[in-house]
Design a protein around this nucleic acid. Sequence first.
DNA 1: CAGGCCGTGCTTTTT
DNA 2: GCACGGCCTG
Length: 754
Amino acid sequence: MSSVDQLTPSQRAAVECIDGPLLVLAGPGSGKTRVVTHRIARLVEHGVPPHQILAITFTNKAAGEMADRVGRLLPGARVQVSTFHRFCARLLRRYASVVGLQPNYTILDSADQKQVLRRVINELDLDPVHYSPEKVGYRISTAKNDLQTSEDIQRQYEESIADHWQAVIARVYPAYQRWLLESNSVDFDDLLLHVATMLVENAELRQELDSRYRYILVDEYQDTNAAQYQIIAALSQEYPNLCVTGDPDQSIYGWRGARIENILRFERDYPDAQVVRLEQNFRSTQAILRSADRLIGHNTQRKAKRLLTDNDEGDAVELLEFADGHDEADGLARRIRDLVEAGKASYGDVAVFYRVNALSRQLELALLRYRVPFQVAAGVAFYDRAEIKDALSYLRLIYNPNDRSAFLRVVNTPLRGLGETSQRRLVAWAADNGCNFLEAAARAKEIPRLTKRAVAGFERFARLMGEFSLADAGSVEKLLLTVLDRTGFTRPWEGSLNEQDQQRLANVQELVTAARQFDAVHGDEPDLEAFLEQTSLVNETDSLDPAAGQVTLMTLHAAKGLEFPFVFILGVEEGLLPHERAVRDAGKRELEEERRLLFVGMTRAERRLWLTQAVTREFRGRTLHTIPSTFLSELEYSRVDASQRGDLFPDWQAVPEPQTDRKALPRDSEGKLDFGNGAKITTAASLLKGSSEAVELPRGFALGMRVRHPRYGVGTVTEVGGFGMRRTVTVNFSEAGRTEKFVAAKAPLQPLGT
DNA sequence: CAGGCCGTGCTTTTT
DNA sequence: GCACGGCCTG
């Protein structure tokens, strides 16, 4: 049962439109997800079989949320809710042979991709400094997102006058693609490109799938790229029951190939499309919305849409002016703390957004100083860590023996004395003899110029790999454990006192746990394929915990789709927002995207919104005078001089005088060091672990005190000097074998007691 | 083959 | 200003 009566008239109109193309233009905070989920429920009520419905999102998080809500409205219904990539991965699994792959293909992650490109660039005798794997990869990715295959690029190059980059891409792209094909593997972009090509070149298949997915819903349609557009179009020809939702004003991924035109031209693509505008905002105050609306009104690439709300007027959007970046960070940290101490907010209600990650650093330090708990939405994702990738590469190689990237990752991990030279000889021989690397390793005796040791090493490795099989192990977890055990994977770190090694062990343990949980969900059918797909398409960055009671720091891009009562947007300055590159390079188009970026940030705020600006800012090591952002002249705000200059240490109390006398340190009843009841902070280390476990900040540092540094590990305070704000501590990190001097008030040092 | 030093080159990053 | 990759040495 869908409770349609709780919807607004326009929401209801969207929900009740069953057949034919439908465009839902949904402003920020207008209840879009509600509409989509209710609409799915409505379709089923109308007798549409759930398996004919396909809902597509961009992120796993969005897919998860949607599936959850659909599940609540329609318990037990089998509606397919999937991300673009996962949907394509599944299709490709079934129709792999159509594009020359085998069904057990594996998916390369971005690190593998870079490795392969580096190899290809070297093989082609190109300068890897000038033509870095990153830049080449970016261009290949752009081409793929624009539906250009390596053949297209080659042909284009031959037929036109090209620059040196085109010449390079025309050589690298086909070679890279060949490597992937020979590895029976694909990269992220291939998942889309292969499916898009397959649907275009294979009329029968297209028809079959079109009629299979009769009702399609696409979320965030403004972010679709050419490949995604083509896939959706191909599946909506005979049955154009296509409902797309989105907001052209929130299109911020143009640089990743997203084409805002896709949503702008929807009515031309489907002339009988119905259009519903969701303009009522349930999130923000009138003041915030009015300001954001005025800003976005300066864009030309959009569909007219008002932002309306019945909410209160609320406080004016404020522009806080600071003297410099340090002043700004300090001022923000103080404001946030005061807000919470005054009982107006809890830390979890506050978010800070910025254009570039580099801007978070000073703020993090300030928040530490003020003992404000925070989480940063960045950091290394779990599945991006080397030890995790290595362990998974074993599984990949077991599943797909042709996976060259996986082979090269693990052949010498742990070390088997099979260095670069031996590997190069094996690779060359495999190419000459048309066999995969694993077969070559088994036949290492035949490879010329290999040392005796290398031959033995390769043979042992091949034999080892031959022993592993999912069927024998019985479950993914057991297979993983067998691999770890038989390869001595964790042995180099066992018993080590090094923090990093311990972290690695813990990470591998976590992977085993993940495998166990996976097995539990999949019952008696051990499914390595699904596990690998899961680990390569799921990113653990969705791990931001809204309930953690911490201030959230993130880029403006990462903020899309979220909401917070109190929002700060840092550095609203020319060059930063809009970013200099957007201004310099292409001009208007990119400038509009920057404007949308600010718009997205502003419309995340529910109750109060602050923008900040510093008079001078350090940039790449030099201090520059800033120019206020053009966007400021386009929105509504009131200016506040928030500079703390002239009052150099305004919050002296917040930085306790470090104590040198160990005996004078405050202690609790048990005689343990008492660090006071200061706010909890999260160390970089515990953030990395993904736990929200907080530690307490010290009141002072004493000689002989043991402290932990997120990078250097555990150390001992050997010297304390300076006074007040300039108090320094010198710490000897015996493990890391180094001695470092810190400014006490700023150092991310966690005391461990004496 | 690891560790240290030097030079370079810099947004954003749903998958 | 800093981080990463490349190159060189023990």
